[in-house]
Amino acid sequence: MKKINKFLLLVAFSAAAFSCSKEDDATPEKSLEDVSMSLSGSSSVISTPSAMASSDDTYAGLASSYVAMANAMTGYSQYFKPPQGAAKSTTPITVANGRVAAAQTEYLVYTWTDPQGSGMSLAYQVSEESDKYVFEIFMKFSQEDDWMRFIYAEETKDGSEGLMHIYVAMNGDDAVFVTYSWKRSGDNFDFVISGIEGESSFEITINGNTKTKAGSAKYVLDDELMFTMEWDAAGNGEWAYYVDGQVDESGSWEV
């Protein structure tokens, strides 16, 4: 039980931070004003069995916490909805912590000022490439500052695959705080959270079945497998803790 503490700490740190199928090639072209990321506006990206989510078992709770970390990505979707009155243009934003991709030929940009009176300005930019759409959020803390990239996201036009980078914008560089990536295949949804915690890198891979809500999670720290979990449609599951690539402890839970 002592060994689980590092995982709970990771969950606490990350939580504080914040069904589509392929279409054929004849998909009609969309206006950029009608384009949105498939996960934008969703309250969750992965669901778990209700009995597991409400269980007081430590490991069932940890599995639910990993899923909650994935669902925390939806908190950023508020930025992908420009408020009424936002200024609109087709001139791409050039930023200090990134470069505009040369392959993109058309942009739609919305800019607005924080309605709370902080003086901060925000911008939402969407553009199109041959097989995907690109969504970006920029910010600047005063009118005298340069635009800084806060969020970069892209998704294939059929919604089957995408990623989102959250930047440490306040540092004025291109450092990525956390990355979310996802893939869909039928009822299977794979979601990966990766980032840096202190001097260590972590990656959490979560697989969920969108119909049954059965799933699994895998935690890798500094490229070393540390923890795996798997649960069924009822919410019952199994877990294993690894040392040097070998199972050191394992167990199960029932809900």
Rank of each mutant, 00 (worst) to 15 (best):
L9W: 11
L10S: 10
A12Y: 00
A17H: 12
E23K: 13
P28C: 03
L32F: 12
L39V: 15
S42T: 09
S42G: 04
S47Y: 05
P49V: 10
S54A: 14
T58V: 14
A60E: 08
L62V: 05
A63G: 11
S64F: 01
S65K: 02
A68F: 06
N71H: 00
A72P: 01
M73V: 15
S77G: 13
S89V: 09
S89A: 08
P92F: 06
I93R: 07
I93S: 07
I93P: 06
T94W: 07
V95C: 10
Q104F: 14
Y107D: 06
L108E: 08
V109Y: 03
V109P: 04
W112I: 03
D114E: 07
P115D: 11
Q116N: 15
Q116R: 15
Q125H: 00
V126Q: 04
V126M: 03
K132W: 01
K132Y: 07
V134W: 08
V134P: 05
K140P: 02
Q143V: 15
Q143S: 14
E144F: 11
E144V: 14
D145S: 03
D145C: 03
A153H: 01
D158M: 01
D158W: 01
E161V: 14
I166M: 12
A169K: 02
N171F: 12
G172I: 09
T179I: 11
K183Y: 05
F189R: 12
S194W: 04
G195M: 01
S200Q: 12
F202I: 10
E203N: 03
G208S: 14
K213I: 06
A214G: 00
A214V: 01
A214I: 04
W231R: 08
A234E: 11
G235T: 12
G235L: 09
N236R: 05
W239H: 05
A240Q: 13
Y241I: 11
Y242A: 03
V243G: 00
E249M: 10
